[in-house]
Amino acid sequence: MKNIWIKNKRELVVLFATIVMACVFTALNATFFTYNNFLTILQQMVLNGILAVGMMVTIITGGIDLSVGCTFAITGITVASCTVNGMNPVLAILVGLVIGAVLGFFNGFLVTNMKLQPFIATLGTMSLYRGIAYVVTGGLPVTSVPDSYRNIFNGKMIGGIRYYIIVMIVVFVIAYILLAKTRTGDYLYAIGGNEEAAKLSGVNVNKTKYVAYIFCSVCAAIAGMVMLASLGSAEATAGSGYETNAIAAAAIGGTRMAGGKGTALGTFIGALMLAVLKVGMVVINVDSFWQFVVTGIIIIVASYFEFVQQDIEKFMVRRKTA
């Protein structure tokens, strides 16, 4: 028990806060606490969760990727056109993943070889990718995506769980393994902790950053494909502003904005918390204007978790010494 606490302090604090929040919502409206509503929450965290876990990896290196919403849109459009024109759905998904990888590679190229600041570089590609999406589609939505494609993500299994929930969990597990179990993971944290020191320790900084940006964009591509399956259509305007929610989820989950810190589990719980908040406010029928206010306050409060976690630690130390 103590071990779990030591290893996952931040995650547990956020989880606890999420549970408290869920209890409040249940107290205000009992229909919040139902299996179906639980599924709704899971479904609604999928897009943000997948985007956030990719975003987190770039943030861990001390960077950021603001272009995820646009990568999301481009992938949606392209995969939609492929399937509408009769391409095999599985092949279309591969095309989507490749697009994600290529766009991520370009982001990586800008921040490593071109030595641009990630914020500026991806701010640029954000507009660039969005523009490409408009140019390619002429602003027209792509509709009537065949069910053969949609069912891959949208189909249901036992308990009414949709496949895309499984997709999200798989993405998180991959991120967990990447960060916690592989050499690249150690390199990612090292670069975020001190890039110069990592470089002088013989870490191939550029290569590792490429991995981060490609991973992030591939996540965005997966999210885009899930959205396509879920809506059955794609638009060039999709996903605008999604990057901010992704950053929020990662930050709430304990990702250090300056880099070097962050876990897949934390980001999962961060995204879960935002979904609970979103669904909860709809269930208890909070006015739209107030939803912005409350979400803002929760994000600010969540940034205090860092201190709460330290306080609990100090408290435990004192009790032990007393």
Binding site: A190, E196, L200, G202
Partner: peptide, 25 residues
């Protein structure tokens, strides 16, 4: 630096705080 490491050469930098160790590790 990666290739240098593989070839068998390494450096202990002058400024440990900014170049030596990872602050959060």
């Amino acid at each position: 630096t990666k290739k240098a490491l593989n070839a068998g050469i390494g450096l202990l930098p002058e400024d440990r705080k900014t170049q030596g160790f990872m602050n959060l590790s």
